[in-house]
C-alpha cells in the first residue's frame, strides 16, 4: 500500500519534470532558432557595401541623413543615409516621416535592400528628454538662448 503511494507520487513528479523539461528546452530551441534567422542586422552604409545582402531579409541601417538628399516625389520620400566613410545608401519611404528627422542628423531605418535601394517600412525617431534637431540647437545658439553642452 505504502509502496504504491510512493510510486504514484513518483509518477506525478516524473510527469511534471517532463513537462517542465519539454517547455524549457523548446523555449531554448526556439530562442536559438530565432536568434539565428529572425534578427535583423544593423549596418552602416559602408558595411552594406562590403556585404552581399539577401533581399528578403529585414535589415536596419543607421547613419546620418545626407544633406540636400531629402526630397518628396509623388507622395514618396527619397533620401540618402551617409556614414563617416562618406558612403551612402539610397532609401525610399512611402509614409509620413516622423518628428525629429532632419538632414545631417542621425536616422535609423528598417527595411528590405533590393536593387541597391533600401525600401523602408519603418523610420524610427528617437526621443530622449534632451534630444533636439541640430538646426534647432544652431538657431538657439545664434539667438543666445542655448545653454546645453
Amino acid at each position: 500500500m505504502k509502496f504504491q503511494k510512493i510510486n504514484s507520487r513518483l509518477k506525478t513528479r516524473l510527469i511534471f519534470f517532463i513537462i517542465i523539461f519539454v517547455c524549457f528546452s523548446s523555449a531554448i530551441y526556439l530562442i536559438s532558432y530565432a536568434l539565428k534567422d529572425k534578427i535583423s542586422f544593423f549596418y552602416s552604409p559602408s558595411e552594406m557595401q562590403a556585404l552581399d545582402i539577401d533581399d528578403k531579409q529585414l535589415i536596419r541601417v543607421g547613419g546620418l541623413l545626407k544633406e540636400n538628399s531629402l526630397r518628396l516625389e509623388n507622395t514618396v520620400w527619397y533620401f540618402d543615409i551617409i556614414d563617416e566613410q562618406e558612403i551612402s545608401v539610397a532609401v525610399i519611404f512611402e509614409k509620413t516621416l516622423p518628428n525629429l528627422v532632419e538632414e545631417n542628423k542621425g536616422i535609423i531605418v528598417e527595411g528590405i535592400y533590393k536593387n541597391n535601394i533600401l525600401i523602408a517600412n519603418t523610420v524610427l525617431a528617437k526621443h530622449d528628454e534632451n534630444y533636439m534637431p541640430q538646426s534647432t540647437i544652431d538657431k538657439m545658439k545664434s539667438e543666445g538662448i542655448w545653454r546645453g553642452d
Binding site: 526556439l30 530562442i31 532558432y33 530565432a34 536568434l35 534578427i39 544593423f42 549596418y43 529585414l58
Partner: peptide
C-alpha cells in the same frame, strides 16, 4: 531577446537588432 544585441556587440563586435520576427517565433 532584449539583451542579445549587447552580447553580439561585445563578443562578435557586430551590431544586430532584435525585433518583431524574433518575438513572433519565440
Amino acid at each position: 531577446g532584449t539583451i542579445y544585441p549587447l552580447f553580439t556587440e561585445i563578443i562578435y563586435q557586430k551590431q544586430v537588432s532584435v525585433g518583431a520576427p524574433y518575438y513572433n517565433v519565440t
